[in-house]
Computed example of a mutant assay.
Amino acid sequence: MLAAGMALTLCALQLCPVALGGSQPPLLVERSGSRRLGKVGGFAWEDCGGGKDPVVLKSLSVAPDPISIPGSLRVSAAVSSSKAMASPLKAVLVVEKALGDLWIQLPCIDQLGSCTYNDVCTVLDNLIPPGTTCPEPLLTYGIPCHCPFKAGSYSLPASDFDLPDVELPAWMTNGNYRVRATVSSGGQELACVKLAFSLQSQ
């Protein structure tokens, strides 16, 4: 389930294309527990499932802060799931950007912003064709990259992901963002994560 969780997290960071892309081996201390999301200008996360969702994000660390594009993103995460997950898995993102003291919800444009992905499993299959070996570091740590996902606990030690030099739309450049990401299946919520982060394009 961590692969779907990682994909969801990176989609929430609006970095879906690198969710499971090429990466180099690890180096970072993982931080556990959530941080207050009211903060502006720093990374924070919260599992918003209220302890009722079958999938729980136990820990998440993202560096640097702010996230720099292009650059390298170090991510560590731990996820537990009490239920096996199968297609279709629907993901809904609500993305807000700070404009002064106001938070403005961004629309979904070209799969960026407040978007709905009707099946995360299909997204994963498009990134990594079925039958192909899972990329590093998922392969090393025994993390599956295709649906269905077995129930259990998965952990990704801090690993580096290269963020390509892509041209972001003007409304997705420098700034502070808040994201609420939920995953559901058949109308039942399976996971909920809130993120706060800053983006800095060079």
Rank of each mutant, 00 (worst) to 15 (best):
C192Q: 00
V179L: 11
S59Q: 07
P169L: 12
D65G: 02
K97T: 10
G142A: 11
A151E: 14
K90L: 15
D165E: 13
V179E: 09
S81W: 05
S184P: 06
Q188A: 15
S68M: 09
L102E: 11
V183L: 15
E96Y: 06
I143T: 01
I67Q: 04
W103Q: 10
R74A: 11
L190E: 00
P130V: 13
A181E: 00
P66C: 08
P129W: 00
D125W: 01
S185H: 15
P148W: 10
M172F: 14
S87F: 08
G113V: 08
S68H: 12
G142R: 09
Y141R: 05
S82L: 13
D65L: 03
S155K: 14
I104K: 07
M172D: 09
V179C: 12
T116A: 07
T182C: 03
D65A: 00
S59F: 02
G186K: 14
S76T: 08
I109E: 06
D110H: 15
D160P: 06
S61P: 06
L138R: 05
S184G: 07
N174Q: 14
A170V: 12
I104H: 09
V62C: 07
L106A: 03
L127K: 13
T132M: 15
S184A: 14
T140N: 02
V75C: 06
A170M: 09
V120I: 13
E189R: 15
D101N: 09
G186A: 11
Y177T: 09
L106T: 03
T182F: 00
L156Y: 05
C147W: 00
P66N: 08
T133I: 10
E96S: 14
E96G: 07
P137F: 00
G187M: 06
R180D: 08
Y177K: 02
F149N: 02
L102V: 10
P88C: 05
L99D: 12
V79Q: 03
N174W: 13
I109P: 01
G71E: 04
L139T: 09
G131I: 01
S61L: 07
